[in-house]
Design a binder for these strands. Structure first.
Length: 266
DNA sequence: CCTTAGTCCTGCATGC
DNA sequence: TGCATGCAGGACTAAG
């Protein structure tokens, strides 16, 4: 499940290969993977060159010389690869062929991923909150959050902060020693600063490790991510906490599994 | 307005 | 072994 570090890794690996490249062929093989009409989208894309590749939240964004933008959200199982394996062919949802002869394949077993085209001079992804890597962004976003939603749910809300998913929310809360059910309004200022710092650190370390490969995620060029070996709580139900040996517990919070240490996180 | 539940989709794990 | 059931997950939509 690609989150900010995985998407950032993908963007960094795509940049040197695809920046400046001109599209010569675009095919959508699954109706639902594209928002809009496939033939119309392909017509708009062909002959355009990619001027810039960047990330916004968990979205991969391509700026085109026509002024349009193309965004890809990988959701659960989406992947972008240059060299698909034999099994990948079955789940091929879109093909982008470039003048430089290289081809980018969008593979997505569960069909949750979404490709979308954005017209010129229209704000891209206007609902997205600030990027958690920006200094102090998390602390500021959490200040003034009232309501009864637990901090875990708030961290997953892309309108509040964009890019954090289930894995890094749990890892950050453990690092900051905050119980996932804590209400943001009840967090002391010092704890908010601590959480801000831990989120940046956890995300940056995961980027350095090229992301967390648990099942589907693979970087486009590197063989695998390595951050799965650094996880402290995610997926470790009943296993001893690395800090205090208390068994890690799992709770359902707004429908998502949340892993935490009941001793370290009060 | 706020919050929760259902939806999408498919492979895998579990239970009988 | 075979079949049915249910679980996982991000973002969107519908409903309370």
């Amino acid at each position: 499940m690609p989150e900010l570090p995985e998407v950032e890794t993908i963007v960094r690996e795509l940049q040197p290969v695809l920046t400046g490249q001109r599209l010569v062929g675009v095919e959508f093989h699954n109706q639902g993977s594209l928002v809009g009409d496939p033939l119309e989208a392909a017509r708009k894309l062909v002959d355009c060159s990619i001027t810039r590749i960047f990330r916004q939240g968990k979205y991969i964004c391509f700026a085109l010389d026509s002024g349009w933008h193309l965004t890809i959200h990988l959701r659960m199982s989406g992947r972008l690869v240059f060299y698909p394996g034999e099994k990948d062919r079955k789940y091929l949802r879109a093909t982008f062929t470039f003048a430089g002869r290289c081809t980018l394949y969008f593979i997505d077993m569960r069909k949750f991923g979404k490709i979308k085209l954005w017209p010129p001079q229209q704000p891209l992804l206007p609902e997205l909150g600030p990027d958690p890597l920006k200094p102090d962004a998390v602390r500021q976003a959490l200040t003034g959050i009232k309501g009864k939603r637990p901090i875990k749910s708030v961290l997953l809300d892309q309108r509040v902060i964009s890019g954090i998913g289930n894995i890094y929310a749990d890892e950050s809360l453990f690092a900051a020693r905050i119980h996932p059910l804590t209400l943001p309004a009840g967090l002391p200022a010092a704890k908010r600063r601590r959480l801000d710092r831990e989120i940046s650190g956890i995300l940056q370390a995961a980027i350095d490790n090229k992301g967390t490969t648990l099942s589907d995620y693979r970087p486009p060029l590197s063989a695998t991510g390595e951050n799965q070996y650094s996880l402290k709580v995610y997926g470790r139900e009943d296993l001893p906490c690395f800090s205090c040996a208390t068994p890690i517990r799992r709770l359902k919070i707004s429908g998502r599994s949340s892993y935490f240490c009941p001793t370290c996180q009060k």
